[in-house]
Simulated scan of single mutants.
Amino acid sequence: MLTRTIAIHYVNAALRGAVRRGHDVTGLLATAGIAEALLADERARVTPAQYTKLVQALWDALDDEFMGLGPRPSKRGTFPTMCLLAVHCASLGDALRRGLAFYDLFDVRPVMTLGEHDGVAAFTLSTAGVDDPDRFLVESLLVLWHRFSSWLIGRRIPLRGVDLSYPEPPHGAEYHLIFGAPLRFSAAATTLTFDARFLRMPVVQDEAALRRFLRNSPAELLSRRDYGADASSQVRRMLGGGVVGLENVAARLGVSAPTLRRKLAAEGTSFREVREQLLRDQAVASLVRGGESVEELALRLGFSEASAFHRAFKRWTGTSPGTYRGGSVG
């Protein structure tokens, strides 16, 4: 199980609109199998499946794809309708322009624009008039449009950079996992940039593929965290595949151990931190899924005794394994 878990910040941020409108947060969390006690600890994590269920529950409760965070709702079905218009376009550029023109009909906020200059395409969001202190809606829309664009042409579009018009938040480490690109905070505007040649690439999807795509999207798109091209993701995959130790992982990646250490340090992490994050995510996923005792899980993850696993889990997530097991449903 290599899937990355998601910081509790994103659960709290997603719930903000529902709270404003007086909805029962307890019920929404129960639908997603998330223990309410986790909301109070910034170290807590949820699985992508839990997060997807939460987003879907919020759409159902609010009838709003913007989850109560925009100045006016974006009714359920707006995004699928835009996708249906876009999938019939010849090129990605045509599809994006048609999709943005569709949203313009509803005077949607935040305002989204597509520009091109000197071979660089820029997708920009204006946050004017949006009461979104967590920037959750803005970041979700950036992720959604980037990943939808990649799906349209059948290949991931590497981002040249991500400019965000606000200071780096405490959970800034998550951003590299979300965007997989160089980040600049406190920028003049909130913009994704990529090579403009992708705008000329043909749309390779059709309506049948779109129906499959929309079964769990856009919730599933928002729940992904791992782009996999950086050193830490490569190390994570090696460790998840059973390769043990820094020297062995480095050899499998074709570099020396000191080189791998330097690459990880440049990404703001270390071999030990990557390993601990993998163990944390494996533990959270197993506890939520059920079917394995804490003792069995501790042994599988390499702990000599359950008490050592309990201590490590409390350090990783701020709470006990039982809290995660108690929060899961279905």
Rank of each mutant, 00 (worst) to 15 (best):
M1T: 13
I6G: 00
R21D: 09
G27N: 09
L29T: 00
A32M: 03
G33N: 00
G33C: 01
E36V: 04
L38G: 01
D41K: 00
E42D: 15
A44F: 06
Q50N: 01
K53H: 05
K53Q: 10
V55C: 01
V55F: 03
L58E: 05
W59H: 13
A61Y: 04
A61S: 12
D64R: 05
E65Q: 13
F66I: 00
G70M: 00
T78H: 11
P80N: 08
T81I: 11
M82S: 11
C83W: 12
L84D: 14
L84C: 12
L85I: 13
A86P: 01
L92C: 10
D94C: 01
L96P: 07
A101E: 12
Y103H: 10
D107F: 12
R109D: 05
R109A: 13
P110Q: 00
T113A: 08
V120I: 12
F123M: 09
L125R: 00
D131H: 04
P133H: 09
D134E: 14
R135L: 03
F136G: 04
L137C: 01
V143N: 00
L144N: 06
W145Y: 13
H146D: 08
R147W: 08
W151H: 09
R155P: 03
L159H: 02
R160P: 00
G161N: 02
Y175P: 03
G180A: 01
F185W: 14
A187P: 01
L199H: 04
M201I: 02
D206Q: 02
E207T: 13
A209Y: 02
L210W: 09
S217P: 03
L221C: 06
S223G: 03
S233E: 11
G242D: 14
L246C: 04
R252Y: 09
G254S: 09
V255I: 13
S256T: 15
K263W: 11
L264N: 07
A265E: 12
A265G: 07
A266P: 05
A266S: 14
G268D: 12
R275S: 15
E276G: 09
Q282A: 10
L287N: 10
R289V: 06
G290T: 06
G290N: 05
G291D: 08
E292V: 15
L297W: 04
A298C: 12
L299H: 13
L301T: 12
F303G: 06
S307P: 00
A312S: 15
K314D: 10
T317F: 08
G318V: 05
G322H: 10
G322K: 08
T323R: 10
G330W: 07
